[in-house]
Design a protein around this nucleic acid. Structure first.
Lengths: 188, 188
DNA sequence: CCGGTAAGTGTACAAGCGTACACCTCCGGG
DNA sequence: CCCGGAGGTGTACGCTTGTACACTTACCGG
């Protein structure tokens, strides 16, 4: 029969994908190897080719997981805001909060962007992520403000990681300024 | 004597550095090897270890060249503006103009950021680049506007590369909006 | 004209890589 | 009880990599 004998472990695959992100974060794509991932995931080397057709698939799936996870967190923060003032604070939180505080996520973002240059599927995921972000912001602000805020989130997050002298207060002031003359959307 | 016999070729070294950027742009850091660079630069493999202590040095020098070059171009565009309106247009030009139009520079930027995570010297170069950018923008706008514009340049450049529907006109509108209530600095 | 020496290179090697696949394990049906 | 076959893995292979270093080249002082 086609029934599985030993219950094939569906967690094995996801464990490997998660481990891949760890390895990328620590060594960069350039230093990411099947062996290192296998060690990090605590699975035998043979599992790598059993579950994945090759490096490309491994990286693609890992980055898809990462994008989805961060995007979801981003949406949660934005959607939790109900008033205009909360929305402003939410944007500040997205820029300065714990999503990015760990260098890990930011490091992964750089590698993600670099990898996307050579991988259409990942590019598609990024486009979707960006669209979602604009939808989330757009629930609180008018379209032009939304574009500006969205770009500011990207730019400030990156710049702050290199120049910590850009404080949360400065970010707050910039967000206030960007949203000062905004026409709120008709419905919440 | 200590005089050089055959005039040692100082261009060889720079040629290799330039070729390194070409290889990174085409294959990513992960696909960058001594052999590929040697082929691109049309120099023998032995030259690689003769002029550079290893991959790290090669990449570091290449990224330093790139950052310096792009930063200089950026400054030129900003400094050419003399009126407030020209300054606005200059910012739009930096975001949508030919610095970034070629995917090459943007691709290299992603790789640059990724590499900087593991290289303090490159991180320092990026910090300097960012400071310079803010000085260039700061000549035309007040400090808070400068922060906002600087972040917008980073964010919009990246987002536009994934979402071409963000037109030059949209960028123009965002820049106008960011600079509308700005207090110009005392002296031009 | 001819050594000596600095400049530069071809080649070889060990390490580490991705990947394939022969093999083992173990359960469910008969 | 045993056997067929699916699930999973250890190992080995061919290849590419970074790097060192013995060597060749060609000039310049004498």
């Amino acid at each position: 029969m086609a029934t599985a004998h030993r219950p094939k472990d569906p967690q094995r695959r996801e464990k490997i994908i998660a481990a891949t992100l760890d390895v990328i974060a620590e060594h960069g794509i350039a230093g990411t190897t099947h062996r290192r991932i296998a060690a990090a995931a605590e699975v035998p080397l043979g599992s790598m080719t059993y579950y994945f057709s090759g490096m490309e698939e491994l990286l693609t799936e890992a980055f898809m997981l990462m994008a989805t996870t961060v995007s979801r967190r981003y949406m949660e923060i934005m959607d939790a805001a109900t008033t205009r003032e909360e929305a402003r604070e939410a944007v500040v939180e997205v820029i300065t909060g714990d999503i990015w505080e760990t260098p890990r996520t930011l490091t992964l973002s750089y590698e993600l962007y670099a990898f996307s240059v050579k991988n259409e599927r990942v590019r598609e995921v990024i486009r979707h992520w960006m669209s979602q972000s604009r939808v989330a912001i757009g629930r609180h602000f008018d379209p032009m403000t939304t574009y500006a805020l969205d770009a500011a989130v990207e730019g400030l997050t990156i710049h702050r990681s290199f120049q910590p002298e850009i404080t949360r207060e400065t970010v707050r002031e910039i967000v206030d300024r960007l949203t000062r003359e905004d026409e709120p959307p008709a419905r919440l």
